[in-house]
Amino acid sequence: MAELNLHLKVWRQKNKEDKGRFVDYDIQGISTEMSILEMLDVLNEKLIKEGTDPVAFEHDCREGVCGCCGIFINGRAHGPLKRITTCQLYMRHFKDGETIVLEPWRAKGFPVLKDLMVDRSAFDRIIAAGGFIAVNTGGAPDANAVPIPKHNSEKALDAAECIGCGACVAACKNASAMLFVSAKVAHLVRLPQGKPEREKRVFAMLNQMEKEGFGSCTNTEACSAECPKGISMDVIAELRREYFRASLKQENN
């Protein structure tokens, strides 16, 4: 276990209306065993004692699954490592004396609320538009009534692992939410239960995505590279197929 002295450059913005700016902090004696969020906890304790406003950042489960946390760290969504969320980034991956730049997700669809916190409610609205299978509680047939090939089920789960953190949008040069939307479309269409609504779903979700002000996908693949769950670009190709299919099939669109 070693200790680090670090220089932080943190985006500070009081609220939605504030213009925001970078503020520099020096912080000493950071254990390499801390997570980066624990490092921010330490910084905040210090700031509170000094009588200044602590840095606001989003976090909840701190075990990489709730999708709350998300900081653009040294030019990368969720920091320099692949396939982890911000809360799972440990300080041993930084060097003593290093400058760490912390920025919020940047996208029109994700307005900054305060410091490193952004508003991702657009994702909820996209799901509300069509990211579901329309079954009411009760009356579902026996779970084994429809066999699903193991392979399909596993592929559906691959897509369903999305945690909705928004790293895909943050990393995309077009601030596109295509990986997020495609992951849900692919998850549901890979299962027989999701097929009846496939046309309706893909239109509804894409329309909502455009309405929320996200860009479109130009296949740079940055989203998939930065996705903490490693959602593959396959899902975007699948969404496109779904869209073409739906455009040719659907009566009124």
Partner: peptide, 24 residues
């Protein structure tokens, strides 16, 4: 349209770590 979707640019952006130069 994609440009309009972007927020203010990042101070540091290591895009080369996640995507090819040509694609960007």
């Amino acid at each position: 349209t994609n440009r309009k979707a972007k927020g203010i640019p990042y101070l540091v952006n290591r895009a080369s770590e996640n995507s090819s130069f040509f694609s960007r």
